[in-house]
């Protein structure tokens, strides 16, 4: 007589940990970075410096939140740095021409969305790989910025409200950082709790399945580039407001920092797997490393080497060290 028993359900804690392995590992790495720089420099762990870090991280975080959506659809947007520079320069030019700053802000947001939309149209409706379209965008947009400014830096004058966006403080906390936190919270809610976020994940996970169940798959795919265009516009204006000028040379290498932050946070380049928390932690890690290396009197150029190495190691861990469920992949016995 056989007796039938039910299998016990697995431990909830183990499920929880394995699902969040990537966020936990980046959180650990972030903590190690903070401890390291606190121990090796005297100035890192001061309020002034930490506020400086979040102020400087703000533009990266804002675009990284949007880039998380883009990479979740298995896409990439290499043009964000150039778009930041173009918006940065264009905003300064328009304000120098006498347009009131609130009008300029609205115009720039629209321009960012439109430029993103054009790239999204090529990617989604014309089926050109995102890598190619946005690589072309990287060149074209930076070129426009150079053409408009002829390489000069354009000063912004008499726009106190605009400067407040980049330099102001609310209760001692930098305004750009507050904006970035708001954007991150918005990104978190959109990704986890709205139909649009679900559509973005579905399109990245299985585009044909998304189409078959009636999701507007192509429109969703194009829309993430509009989002990243708008985010780049916000970042471009924050940088212009902080520096008080617009320059075609702003945000050099910005796209790499953003992509490094997102990938470091555990969002998969293959699409479908996203982590907003990871993106925030990834951005802060990149910012802390950049800041810490300068405080340690290491050449600022070294930051570029570190950023590149982080991308490589993060992707390496992403593909080799962990399996697709972010558990440590078991080595095959040789």
């Amino acid at each position: 007589m056989a007796s039938y028993t039910e299998r016990q359900a697995g431990s909830r804690l183990a499920d929880y940990l394995s699902e969040r392995a990537q966020v936990l590992s980046i959180a650990l790495f972030f903590a190690i970075c903070i401890l390291f720089f606190s121990a090796t420099t005297t100035t890192f762990l001061t309020t002034g410096n930490l506020l400086n870090v979040v102020r400087q991280a703000a533009p990266i975080l804002i675009v990284a939140v949007a880039m998380t959506l883009v990479i979740t659809t298995a896409g990439i947007d290499l043009s964000v740095g150039s778009l930041v520079a173009l918006i940065n320069a264009l905003a300064a030019i328009l304000m120098a021409a006498g347009l009131p700053w609130p009008v300029v802000v609205v115009l720039m947001l629209v321009a960012g969305g439109l430029i993103g939309g054009v790239q999204g149209w090529f990617i989604s409706y014309q089926g050109i790989p995102a890598f190619i379209v946005t690589l072309a965008g990287l060149s074209i947009l930076r070129g426009f910025a150079l053409l408009l400014t002829e390489g000069y830096s354009i000063p912004i004058r008499d726009a106190a409200g605009f400067f407040w966006l980049g330099r102001g403080e609310v209760l001692g906390f930098p305004v750009p950082a507050l904006l970035a936190i708001l954007v991150a919270i918005l990104g978190f809610i959109v990704m986890l709790h709205t139909q649009y976020g679900r559509q973005v994940v579905a399109v990245g996970s299985n585009m044909e399945a998304a189409r078959r169940v009636g999701m507007p798959a192509k429109r969703v795919l194009a829309s993430v580039y509009v989002v990243s265009g708008v985010a780049s516009a916000i970042a471009g204006m924050l940088i212009a407001a902080r520096l008080g000028s617009g320059s075609s040379n702003a945000a050099q290498g910005f796209e790499l920092q953003v992509i490094a932050a997102v990938v470091l946070g555990g969002t998969s380049l293959m699409g479908g797997r996203a982590s907003m928390t990871g993106t925030v932690l990834g951005t802060m890690t990149i910012a802390v490393i950049g800041n810490g290396l300068i405080l340690m009197h290491i050449s600022p150029f070294f930051t570029q080497i570190v950023t590149g190495t982080i991308i490589l190691v993060a992707i390496w861990m992403n593909t080799r060290l962990f399996d697709r469920n972010w558990r440590f992949a078991r080595r095959k016995p040789s």
């Binding site: 709205t194 679900r198 994940v201 996970s205 399945a209 998304a210 078959r212 169940v213």
Partner: peptide, 23 residues
């Protein structure tokens, strides 16, 4: 035609998600 990165509930309601307000 399932989305691997969406949970079981999400896949059952894929394309006809129930909403409460915007969420």
């Amino acid at each position: 035609s399932l989305c691997d990165h969406v949970d079981v509930v999400g896949n059952l309601f894929l394309g006809r998600e129930l909403k409460r307000g915007p969420f």
